[in-house]
Each structure stands twice: as C-alpha cells, then as structure tokens.
Lab assay of single mutants.
Amino acid sequence: DVEPGKFYKGVVTRIEKYGASINLNEQVRGLLRPRDMISLRLENLNVGDEIIVQAIDVRPEKREIDFKYIP
C-alpha cells in the first residue's frame, strides 16, 4: 500500500502538459504535476526514466495518487 509522505521509486510512463504518469508497479500509478516538481522541469523528463517520488495525496477509493518530486 502507498502511504502519504513515503518515498518510492517509479518509472515515467507518459508525459503530458498537465504532468507525468508515474508507475510504481503494474497495479500502482499516479501523477506528478509540474507544480510538484521542485528542481525538475517536465520537459527534462523522458518516458522510461526512473525517479524517486514522494506520495503526497493518496485516494484509494478513486485509485488516484499524487506525487511530488524532491531531489
């Protein structure tokens, strides 16, 4: 289970102007929005990149997770 405040290694699977889709595994994925990137710009991400993200909002009833990137 993903817990708010914990850090996870994820893989960038899609990049859109509203954010990047991050997969932690086949069943768990979430969104990294541009506003939640401290020192990383969306255009510097590539599909397949592995990054460390922090879960900031977990809504299991909607199967949604928001991530934050902290270098």
Results as ranks from 00 to 15, higher is better:
Asp1Ala: 13
Asp1Gly: 13
Asp1Gln: 13
Asp1Thr: 14
Val2Thr: 03
Val2Arg: 03
Val2Ser: 02
Glu3Thr: 13
Glu3Ile: 15
Glu3Lys: 14
Glu3Asn: 07
Glu3Cys: 11
Pro4Glu: 11
Pro4Thr: 12
Pro4Leu: 14
Pro4Gln: 11
Pro4Ala: 12
Gly5Trp: 07
Gly5Leu: 07
Gly5Ser: 04
Lys6Arg: 13
Lys6Met: 10
Lys6Gln: 08
Lys6Asn: 07
Lys6Tyr: 07
Lys6Ala: 07
Lys6Val: 08
Phe7Arg: 05
Phe7Gln: 03
Phe7Glu: 02
Phe7Tyr: 10
Phe7Leu: 06
Phe7Pro: 04
Tyr8Ala: 00
Tyr8Glu: 00
Tyr8Phe: 04
Tyr8Val: 00
Tyr8Leu: 03
Tyr8Asn: 00
Tyr8Cys: 13
Lys9Ile: 11
Lys9Arg: 14
Lys9Asn: 05
Lys9Pro: 02
Lys9Gln: 07
Gly10Pro: 00
Gly10Lys: 00
Gly10Gln: 01
Gly10Asn: 01
Val11Gly: 00
Val11Asn: 03
Val11Leu: 09
Val11Pro: 00
Val11Asp: 00
Val11Glu: 02
Thr13Gly: 05
Thr13Val: 11
Thr13Ser: 10
Thr13Tyr: 07
Thr13Glu: 07
Thr13His: 06
Thr13Ala: 08
Arg14Met: 10
Arg14Gln: 11
Arg14Gly: 09
Arg14Asp: 05
Ile15Asn: 01
Ile15Gly: 00
Ile15His: 01
Ile15Ala: 01
Ile15Pro: 00
Glu16Arg: 13
Glu16Cys: 14
Glu16Phe: 15
Glu16Trp: 15
Glu16Ile: 06
Lys17Asp: 11
Lys17His: 12
Lys17Leu: 11
Lys17Tyr: 13
Lys17Cys: 13
Tyr18Phe: 13
Tyr18Val: 10
Tyr18Ser: 10
Tyr18Glu: 13
Tyr18Thr: 11
Tyr18His: 14
Tyr18Leu: 08
Tyr18Gln: 10
Gly19Leu: 05
Gly19Asn: 03
Gly19Cys: 09
Gly19Ile: 05
Gly19Pro: 01
Gly19Ser: 06
Ala20Ser: 02
Ala20His: 03
Ala20Gly: 02
Ala20Phe: 08
Ala20Lys: 01
Ala20Cys: 07
Ser21Met: 15
Ser21Lys: 10
Ser21Gln: 15
Ile22Leu: 03
Ile22Gln: 01
Ile22Gly: 01
Ile22His: 02
Ile22Asn: 01
Asn23Pro: 01
Asn23Met: 15
Asn23Tyr: 14
Asn23Val: 14
Asn23Lys: 15
Asn23Ser: 15
Asn23His: 13
Leu24Asn: 01
Leu24Ile: 14
Leu24Tyr: 02
Leu24Gly: 01
Leu24Cys: 07
Leu24Pro: 01
Asn25Ser: 14
Asn25Arg: 06
Asn25Ala: 08
Glu26Leu: 11
Glu26Thr: 12
Glu26Cys: 13
Glu26Asn: 14
Glu26Ile: 12
Glu26Pro: 14
Glu26Ala: 14
Gln27Ala: 12
Gln27Arg: 13
Gln27Ser: 14
Gln27Lys: 13
Val28Asp: 05
Val28Met: 08
Val28Ser: 05
Val28Gln: 08
Arg29Cys: 13
Arg29Trp: 15
Gly30His: 03
Gly30Ile: 10
Gly30Glu: 02
Gly30Lys: 01
Gly30Trp: 05
Leu31Asn: 06
Leu31Lys: 05
Leu32Ala: 01
Leu32Pro: 00
Arg33Gly: 03
Arg33Trp: 04
Pro34Gly: 08
Pro34His: 07
Pro34Met: 08
Pro34Ser: 10
Pro34Phe: 09
Pro34Ala: 11
Arg35Glu: 12
Arg35Gly: 10
Arg35Gln: 12
Arg35Cys: 09
Arg35Pro: 04
Arg35Met: 08
Arg35Val: 08
Asp36Arg: 04
Asp36His: 12
Asp36Glu: 05
Asp36Phe: 08
Asp36Met: 09
Asp36Gln: 05
Met37Pro: 02
Met37Gln: 03
Met37Gly: 04
Met37Ile: 07
Ile38Lys: 09
Ile38Thr: 11
Ser39Gln: 14
Ser39Thr: 10
Ser39Lys: 12
Ser39Ile: 09
Ser39Asp: 15
Ser39Glu: 14
Ser39Tyr: 13
Ser39His: 14
Leu40Arg: 06
Leu40Phe: 05
Leu40Ala: 07
Leu40Tyr: 04
Leu40Ser: 07
Arg41Trp: 09
Arg41Cys: 12
Arg41Met: 11
Leu42Lys: 03
Leu42Glu: 02
Leu42Gly: 03
Leu42Tyr: 06
Glu43Ser: 11
Glu43Arg: 09
Glu43Lys: 10
Glu43Gly: 08
Glu43Tyr: 09
Asn44Trp: 14
Asn44Asp: 15
Asn44Tyr: 10
Asn44Gln: 14
Asn44Cys: 15
Leu45Glu: 00
Leu45Trp: 01
Leu45Ile: 09
Asn46His: 15
Asn46Met: 13
Asn46Lys: 15
Asn46Arg: 15
Asn46Ser: 14
Asn46Cys: 14
Val47Asp: 02
Val47Pro: 04
Val47Thr: 03
Val47Met: 05
Gly48Ile: 01
Gly48Val: 03
Gly48Glu: 02
Gly48Arg: 01
Asp49Met: 13
Asp49Asn: 03
Asp49Phe: 06
Glu50Lys: 10
Glu50Met: 14
Glu50Cys: 15
Ile51Glu: 00
Ile51Pro: 00
Ile51Ser: 00
Ile51Cys: 01
Ile52His: 04
Ile52Met: 10
Val53His: 00
Val53Ser: 00
Val53Tyr: 00
Val53Asp: 00
Val53Ala: 01
Gln54Gly: 03
Gln54Glu: 05
Gln54Asp: 00
Gln54Thr: 06
Gln54Val: 12
Gln54Ser: 05
Gln54Trp: 11
Ala55Arg: 03
Ala55Met: 09
Ala55Phe: 07
Ala55Asp: 00
Ala55Val: 15
Ala55Gln: 03
Ala55Lys: 00
Ile56Val: 10
Ile56Arg: 05
Ile56Asn: 02
Ile56Tyr: 12
Asp57Thr: 13
Asp57Pro: 03
Asp57Ser: 15
Asp57His: 14
Asp57Ile: 12
Asp57Asn: 15
Asp57Ala: 15
Asp57Leu: 13
Asp57Lys: 15
Val58Glu: 03
Val58Lys: 04
Val58Cys: 09
Val58Phe: 07
Arg59Ser: 07
Arg59Gln: 06
Arg59Asp: 10
Arg59Trp: 07
Pro60Leu: 10
Pro60Ser: 09
Pro60Gly: 10
Glu61Gln: 10
Glu61Phe: 07
Glu61Ala: 11
Glu61Ser: 11
Glu61Pro: 06
Lys62Cys: 10
Lys62Pro: 06
Lys62Glu: 10
Lys62Thr: 13
Lys62Asp: 10
Lys62Ile: 09
Arg63Val: 07
Arg63Trp: 11
Arg63Met: 13
Arg63Ser: 12
Glu64Trp: 13
Glu64Leu: 11
Glu64Ala: 07
Glu64Phe: 11
Glu64Pro: 04
Ile65Thr: 03
Ile65Pro: 03
Ile65Lys: 03
Ile65Ser: 03
Ile65Glu: 02
Asp66Gln: 10
Asp66Pro: 02
Asp66Leu: 15
Asp66Tyr: 15
Phe67Met: 03
Phe67Asp: 02
Phe67Gln: 02
Phe67Lys: 03
Phe67Ser: 00
Phe67Ile: 04
Phe67Tyr: 02
Lys68Glu: 03
Lys68Phe: 08
Lys68Gly: 14
Lys68Thr: 06
Lys68Met: 13
Tyr69Glu: 06
Tyr69Leu: 06
Tyr69Arg: 03
Tyr69Ser: 03
Tyr69Asn: 04
Tyr69Met: 06
Ile70Lys: 05
Ile70Gln: 08
Ile70Pro: 05
Ile70Tyr: 11
Ile70Thr: 10
Pro71Val: 07
Pro71Glu: 07
Pro71His: 08
Pro71Trp: 08
Pro71Gly: 13
